[in-house]
Design a protein around this nucleic acid. Sequence first.
DNA 1: ACCTCGCCAGACACCGGTGTCAACGCCCGC
DNA 2: GCGGGCGTTGACACCGGTGTCTGGCGAGGT
Lengths: 356, 356
Amino acid sequence: MSSRTPKPSDDEALQSGRRRATINDVARLAGVSKKTVSRVINRSPSVRPETREKIEAVIARYGYAPDPQARGLAFRRSFLIGLIYDNPNPQYVVNMQLGLLDGMRGSGFELVVHPCDRGSTTLVPDIRAFIERQKLFGVVLTPSVSEDEAVAEMLREIGCEYVRVASVAVDSEAHSIVTRDRHGGLLAGRHLAELGHRRVGFISGPDRFRSSHERRGGFEEGLKEHGVALAADCVAEGAYTFESGMEAAARLLALKDRPTAIFAGNDEMAAGVLHAARRAGLSVPGDLSVIGFDDFQIASRVWPPLTTIRAPTREIGRLAADRLLGVTEGDKRDPEWRLPSLVVRDSTAAPGKQEP
Amino acid sequence: MSSRTPKPSDDEALQSGRRRATINDVARLAGVSKKTVSRVINRSPSVRPETREKIEAVIARYGYAPDPQARGLAFRRSFLIGLIYDNPNPQYVVNMQLGLLDGMRGSGFELVVHPCDRGSTTLVPDIRAFIERQKLFGVVLTPSVSEDEAVAEMLREIGCEYVRVASVAVDSEAHSIVTRDRHGGLLAGRHLAELGHRRVGFISGPDRFRSSHERRGGFEEGLKEHGVALAADCVAEGAYTFESGMEAAARLLALKDRPTAIFAGNDEMAAGVLHAARRAGLSVPGDLSVIGFDDFQIASRVWPPLTTIRAPTREIGRLAADRLLGVTEGDKRDPEWRLPSLVVRDSTAAPGKQEP
DNA sequence: ACCTCGCCAGACACCGGTGTCAACGCCCGC
DNA sequence: GCGGGCGTTGACACCGGTGTCTGGCGAGGT
């Protein structure tokens, strides 16, 4: 009996569930010191099996769960994980959140969201304040902030756990989750080349996104396998937004020798391409094939439904959470399962072919 | 000097910013007790102005910020706000999150997200565990969980602050934020009736969403102003999903006397209506006018761009956060600013009119 | 001059956990 | 029989704040 005896009404409240059990209650009811209970909670090996069982029985009986705040105070670290992102696409954000939550389920951790502005001059201090204020256990960064070295540097400096999701390894293996966008681009290139397209266009994302370059690189590689080259005048820079896709497509479609197919860096821009094609009086896929990237909901909502590259964002999120929490099981699975894959719908066809 | 003197290295770390200041540091450096510093932090009136200023100077000098964990432990309440939702629409979720964050900025609170399944048999205990585990300061509920009385009952029982976002007042004024979906429906009805439509269709959301009924009620009201009635056979139930919208529209368009316009309960379903119309060989808005609800991104991505009702989700989120944090300023503004509004694009026209 | 009251500030316990270190019992070897 | 080492446990301080209660002090009433 380590702490002072409680008032009788206290135990009553405990029984009825009106009061949550604390470590002191468990210690008292199990006839051990709170430190020993703490050892059981933290899976310390130096507890005799009988003692452990006795304590675990009390824990189960009263549904005791340690208070993360108190634990965090002593550990100097909270049980919160932050998602730091600047990608404005709602579907990306939500899928990532869902994936992270998948991986965090049952761990006792919670997810705190933190959108940010990569262009802000106070980006690094803002993120730092966010982390230090709540003493976050760790953070997950997604493109494009995940590609910011100043941010990563700061995270190392303050000793915060982190995982960077990016299209290529931008950090040590322990700190990166690679989405392999290059492979997605490759599939897009192959698909168009196999359909017989020879003059193809590409609309990239913004330069600061690593994925813009990876998707393009893979695309060129896929084309090349079939002897097709991406002409310089058939490349336009977009901003991963619908409007930018529309504008970039308008430029490409105004070319004297316009491409018969366009690979847009994401679905949003691909939707913009569809609008531009319609304005130009071109039918898709009859006069122009269009392929997107992401396979977000929009891909199947537009007309014609978009052929696109499915990026397993939710699965990537799950993996990121696993990594942060030290679960390594997920990493061992066949890496193929988290590779981008081709989803063929109705926006691509052989060049010159009429719609059915 | 209340606590033991620190090692010289400690103060050095403080100066250089390697160590964050604690309340003990501030107390020592200001020559007062930590309790007095606590009073300043909590804006207790019983502190002499000179003392307060002295302490505030030290706080500013060292950039001291109280530790939410320690504060939370003593307060028996964290500085976290939970967003509990079951709406699967990513854009809704993200807009709501952004609105909440708008309202929480600078408050020292953070946002924890918690998707849930309204249909789960463990819904109430799951939410309860979520709240009690992290001792959430408060939660924001959005449709349709916001309309669940069992959940609200539990929140009252455990004394958790909460705000319910719903289309009508489902709770006391302090606990509800009303989105006035009825008004949006009214605008849709008026718009179609004013264009000259006499036979119109409606695709509702799921029955358990209060908004389904409100949008319909308002729609009928708007039609009625112009002497138009909503025929029973022109109403179909959807599920707020693209597929359900497509199926419901297919049914309505197969009617012998098919409607010349359809109001879909949200944009997702309206996109489904567009697909169904195309399949049926109908042009929009030439043969069929379509109007949606939400004005999410998809509305302007599809073809033709959708006339729709803009729901100010982000603003509503901001209001919810203000309410939870006890800020009342936002409530006083002209309530018009957070009413749904009509956004006219290209999917509605007078009946029988050809596309340009 | 004395008592009371209100204002202000501090001492101390407490919130619910963990780290450190010492004590205990037991088995081993000499 | 005794010292040493190991496995197990507990006492106590501590993490960084807040609640309660008490005491010192000056102003106001009698």
